[in-house]
Design a protein around this nucleic acid. Structure first.
Lengths: 180, 180
DNA sequence: GACGTACATGTCACTCGATGACATATGCTT
DNA sequence: AAGCATATGTCATCGAGTGACATGTACGTC
């Protein structure tokens, strides 16, 4: 049902635009009442953002699981390159990404998600043994990594999904690799 | 009147929280009706974000005005270091920044602003004569610069505003300086 | 002084997202 | 059959935001 709602919603959003599609429209398309929609998703925006609740924690765990001596930036690169695919491509097709990219309300929600993730990842980064990373640096690197993922996605959309996402992420991370 | 509304709103937000303050409360505090509030500000969130409408364009102009040979990252550093003060400190005191930082809805709005600015700045960066910057690189650098500003602000808040903002921005930009 | 115009504000009604309270149905378990 | 959990519907309500229309107040001009 969740999946069905999500698919119907995306179709409607693409067809008539996000703002011009009411929650009641979506619910009706699935044969539900407005109230029931909100039992599946906490908000209209969330219908597009899959079950990314625990994802932040899993990414944070991945950060903690990286080899001990690895540089922070390399850790972020490795982890996000692997998870980026699951974050985006798995659950969102290009239509959804385009929609998000072009709808302020959805971009705002995306950022909100990122913010929550950033905190957790930044903390995980600092908790890695050995590397005495201060809060500022960890926060900065993580925010920058998020910016890299974001930029890679936008570039991917600009080229209509013909580029290799992993390679774009690599380019972004390499380009920003902090100096010694 | 705009200023008065903004000040009253901030006071109320700090006192009772953002969510627990209705637009009607703010309007009433200023002796206005709810409808009139929305004649001064397009949304509840905007009451905290000053007149930053044309600011993006002015920053973009500043980017275009930088010396010809300067590296893109150095351009962003120079311009944002100068404007960061005007963006933040001038119009927002620490209470407002804290409020924004701790309220998801407001952070979302802040990101929205940043997004709009990012596009303009990224374009300006590419329009600088001489530097054949591709869209991806310009976008990436700009997004990363925004992340730097953001991280600097958070660090500043963490230290209760005792740090020198300019110096924090410098540290962030230096740390991220892209390799050759 | 009367008139007209521009502007700020108020009032009313409405849409839409979101939430709480309560009722109903369906199906599974004991 | 009785009991219970789950899914759903209905109703009422709040708060943000918008459109339509009225009102007041100050300014000018004739």
């Amino acid at each position: 049902m969740r999946t069905e709602l999500a698919e119907l919603a995306l179709a409607l959003f693409v067809e008539r635009g996000y703002e011009d599609t009411t929650v009641e429209d979506i619910a009706a398309a699935a044969g539900l009442s407005k109230r029931s929609f909100f039992r599946y998703f906490p908000s209209k925006e969330d219908v597009l953002f899959g079950d990314v609740e625990d994802l932040a924690d899993r990414v944070a765990d991945a950060v903690r699981a990286r080899p001990a001596g690895e540089e922070p930036w390399a850790v972020l690169h490795a982890v996000l390159r692997e998870w980026e695919a699951r974050i985006h491509a798995a659950q969102w097709d290009m239509a959804a990404l385009r929609l998000i990219e072009s709808t302020p309300a959805l971009r705002a929600r995306l950022h909100q998600r990122r913010d929550g993730m950033r905190d957790r990842i930044s903390t995980a980064l600092r908790e890695r043994p050995g590397t005495g990373l201060d809060t500022f640096t960890a926060d900065l690197l993580t925010a920058c990594a998020a910016a890299a993922i974001d930029a890679a996605t936008r570039e991917w959309l600009r080229h209509d999904g013909t580029d290799d996402r992993g390679e774009l992420v690599d380019r972004a991370f390499t380009m920003l690799a902090p100096g010694p």
